[in-house]
Design a binder for these strands. Sequence first.
DNA 1: GCCAACGTTGGC
DNA 2: GCCAACGTTGGC
Length: 137
Amino acid sequence: MAYWLFKSEPNTWGWQDQIAKGDVGEEWDGVRNYQARNFMRAMEIGDRGFFYHSMKEKSVVGIVEVIATAHPDSTTDDPRWECVDIKAVETVPTPVTLDQIKADPRLTEMVLVKNSRLSVQPVTNEEWQIVCTLGGL
DNA sequence: GCCAACGTTGGC
DNA sequence: GCCAACGTTGGC
């Protein structure tokens, strides 16, 4: 099983919106970036991901699970863009802030730190464990 | 709200 | 195919 990170601006689509969808989940649509799309193509059902709030909050606030592999993005006719479906699994008890991640010497290689603009990112097993611990899981 | 960084677009 | 111009993102 692989781990990922999904980044969203809470004003556009936040953790509360994701929770509201329950087990039905929701398309992670609107991605218009090849790197991000390629990561989504690599995802498998059951993969887990962090749900990250950008902008004001800048923290990992939830855990999601991939429930559908890559399929055409319903928000565009452009066949280049695809998306996966994800559902909320659990809320991180203590959101892990970007400051915390940057301050941890074990997490300096995270894509979140190195390429903050990428909206869908891979997370290593080690990084997953560390961030989960920081979040109180 | 500003601006740096990045990715994409389009003219040549 | 290169590269300048532009738009967008997201940290500060």
